[in-house]
Simulated scan of single mutants.
Amino acid sequence: MSTPHKTRPDALTMEVVELIGDVVARFYSDYEDAAAEYALTGAQARLLNLLSLEPLPMRKLAHKLKCEPSNVTGIVDRLEGRGLVERRPDPADRRVKVAAVTDEGQRVARDLREGLRFAREPLAGLSHQERESLRELLRRMLGVDTAS
């Protein structure tokens, strides 16, 4: 029985894949460094960033962070203890609790994003038009609607 012939990616595609991997690694490293300036772990900083966009139930947070809900509960507990996050009833279903950032949590999340060296250095080194082109290419790769 023969196996279907799989086309190997060309050298250019493989180089792009490697470069994307390098960008991701650098982004996570910068994120960890920025988080450490606020005595946060990378996971705490990522959760805070997610919650700065919208309050979310634990289950959705776990899904977005690709971890177990019990891990999310621990992270939320620690952030709540620092006054960065609070638990509230979900307006859509009062039996469900959502985690939401406090005003201080929103400020820290904003400072974290602004503190990323990656955004200040290599990305800022691109022209406005280059950043727009990169944004559109990344959206296409991710299947995000570019009409917005």
Rank of each mutant, 00 (worst) to 15 (best):
H5K: 13
S29H: 08
E86V: 07
D30R: 00
T13L: 07
A100N: 04
G81S: 13
P57W: 06
A100L: 03
D33L: 07
K6C: 09
V24R: 08
L56M: 14
A36M: 12
V96C: 08
N49R: 09
D90I: 03
L116D: 01
R26V: 09
R140P: 01
L51G: 01
E32A: 08
R117H: 09
R120Q: 05
V23M: 09
Q106F: 11
Y38Q: 11
R135E: 14
N71M: 08
P122N: 01
A11Q: 15
R113Y: 04
K60G: 07
V76A: 08
N49W: 02
N49T: 03
Y28M: 09
L40G: 06
H5Y: 10
R87P: 03
L65I: 06
A11P: 06
A92M: 11
A35M: 02
L61N: 07
L56T: 11
L12S: 08
L56A: 05
S70D: 11
L19K: 05
D103H: 05
R139Y: 10
R78L: 09
T73P: 02
Q44F: 03
E15T: 11
H63L: 13
A25S: 12
V108A: 01
L116Y: 01
Y31F: 13
R135A: 14
R117D: 13
E114A: 06
M141F: 09
R120D: 05
R87N: 07
R87M: 11
E114P: 00
S52P: 02
V23Y: 09
V108Q: 01
A124I: 00
L134Q: 09
S70K: 09
K66V: 06
P89M: 06
A39E: 11
V101Q: 02
S52R: 02
V101M: 01
K6R: 08
R120Y: 01
K60W: 10
K97V: 11
R117G: 08
Y31M: 11
P122H: 00
P122T: 00
M14I: 14
L19N: 15
L79K: 03
R135W: 12
L12A: 13
E37S: 12
L47P: 03
S133M: 14
K6S: 15
E18M: 10
S52I: 02
S70F: 06
E132K: 12
R82C: 04
